[in-house]
Amino acid sequence: MSRRLAALALAVALPASAAENVAALLKQADAFRLPAESVRVETQVELYKNGALDKERLYTVYVKPGRRSLVLMKSPSEIGQKVLMLADQFWLLMPESQRPLRITASQKLLGEASTGDIASMTWSEDYDGVVEDEVDCPVPPPNLPEATAPPKPRRCLHLDLAQARSGVTYARIELYLEKSIKLPIKADLYVGSGKRAKEAWYVPKPIEGQQRIMAMLLLDDIQPNRRTVVHYRSIVPKAAPDEFFNPAALVRNSLSGW
């Protein structure tokens, strides 16, 4: 509590631009990851172990407002698997049985590439928090080939976010947003026990004249020899019909035209 009070006091003491409404800041940051509320995202995930590529996975993710996501596994070893997320409720479909299985939030976190990391692409619907302080933007570690340090230092807003709803992948996030445009730079991701689970680095690329987050690097604190690179190969505005987000509809191949 005292930490929160101190953060609030610091926020009051900060220049007006840094003490902006956190919800508005998060919405601005989200826009760098999702250009529209309803999208189809083609994702390629590379799992590195001890610096060497260990596994590669492909996913198609449909995102709709109301915290709805549908993940279709596309790699040969996982083809046919689907994960549906409706707010804090989750279902898994395995192709062997063709029966949607209700799973818990903890089960969603299992597996090599957490579907929560792949399907959760916004903060504003899931987190509240405070602007902790204004700092020099963190610089990626030198051993990350996918992320390079910018040529000159930048200033960042350091946000301390707590989950506003149940079922989110991480209970707390320390998020660094580039101060001028609110571009996500880095996030420290904490699980419910308070332990930091992962460190995320966001890699922007210019797309049609605008900066977009087109890759996310995840460094695992629990298994430090692992590094995950999530490439967003394409992000296309697409509003799949609501009935496709029905758990019983997972057994149908209805999304092939979407």
């Binding site: 987000f245 029905n246 019983a248 509809a249």
Partner: peptide
């Protein structure tokens, strides 16, 4: 024949 809404389904 299957009918789906956002939260209900019939087969």
């Amino acid at each position: 024949v299957e009918r789906f809404t956002a939260d209900e389904a019939w087969t």
